[in-house]
Design a protein around this nucleic acid. Structure first.
Lengths: 193, 193
DNA sequence: AAGTGATTTAAACATTTGATTAAATCACTT
DNA sequence: AAGTGATTTAATCAAATGTTTAAATCACTT
């Protein structure tokens, strides 16, 4: 049942709370309570709140990048399939981690240095492949617009979920259906027949 | 020169710092320093940090909603012109307030209650108008998808600016051109000829 | 069972933080 | 110039917060 190590309990609690409330609003005592461990163990295992935070952010961030990079860079996958695959994978990922995009993007804008390496490599590999495929498919989009649009169409509903729901555009209980149905639509919007 | 009242100085400083760093990370002493006033004046004029924050958020939020609501609800404006007008107005607004979307959306997800009233009214008026116009124009989109897409395409580059730049997809100095050129493109993407 | 190092605990520490107080200063009226 | 209320200041308060300490407990070896 309780097969988690102390370190895992802390990381799990930190994951949850940092994602929900951000770095500054999350208190070390809250993390300790959520994890069900003594406060001092946080520093014993992770040194500092900031270090724990970096671990959490990098992990979240990796989730976000690793969905996309290998798909985009693969020359064998046709463009249309890439869109489908990325849309499906991202939507599923975000449905299980709804706070992920707003958290990562927000922390990114606050802490510009932390992520540079990971993204840069991903882009360097993917960009020429995508540009080639766009040209071949006759889609008049730059790689930047292509990636911005596909990410925006997928992620924006999650980023703006509260806006969409509290405006009444989509009811809370319809949200799952809303984003699920968008999977099919996004494919059509990006790569028109 | 220095025609600002103490209250204005405080609101301006709070505006800047809350937008940059969020509620919890912004300290009352920082606001006082940035405003160049004595710390006690913050509580003298605004009662509490939280109250000051609400004033700032509501103002930011109003900026974001008021660009869109009156345009969307106007039956006289053709759909295509609405898209153009919203795209242009939002892009210009966001270029002058780059932190605005991520700040508002993030605070919104943290503080779901604060904004409900404002948005709800805007949507109630706009939604039937838009649904009508979509049908008449033969655009196969629900109002929810229409608004999500247009907002996503406009706002996402600002929300994900750091991702886009640090990946190298768009260089920092090209960002202005990037979002400016998207104005024209978004219109075409949403309402295809 | 004693010893040993890792783990856990309760308590404490030094700062930071939001807020308040009481006195000082200012602007304005009489 | 004296009086009055609004504004500003320096100092202080109590609580919260990240971290550390030293002792206690645990797991494991000899």
């Amino acid at each position: 049942m309780e097969a988690l190590t102390t370190e895992q309990k802390i990381v799990n609690a930190a994951n949850k709370l940092f994602s929900q409330k951000g770095f500054a609003a999350t208190k070390t005592r809250e993390i300790a309570d959520e994890a069900g461990i003594n406060l001092a163990l946080l520093n014993y295992y992770f040194g500092s709140k900031e270090n724990l935070f970096k671990i959490v952010v990098k992990e979240k961030f990796r989730m976000l990048v690793e969905v996309m990079a290998p798909i985009l860079s693969d020359k064998e996958i046709p463009l249309r399939d890439k869109v489908e695959s990325i849309t499906n994978n991202y939507t599923d990922l975000l449905l299980e981690n709804e706070e992920l995009p707003i958290f990562v993007l927000n922390e990114w804008s606050l802490n510009k240095e932390m992520f540079a390496e990971i993204t840069l490599n991903a882009r360097k590999i993917a960009q020429p492949v995508i540009e080639n495929q766009l040209k071949e498919s006759g889609v008049e989009l730059s790689a930047a617009d292509f990636i911005t649009n596909i990410l925006g169409l997928i992620m924006f509903p999650f980023v703006a979920k509260q806006l969409i729901i509290s405006s009444g555009l989509v009811k809370e209980e319809e949200f799952l259906t809303f984003v699920t149905e968008r999977k099919e639509k996004i494919k059509e919007w990006i790569v028109k027949k």
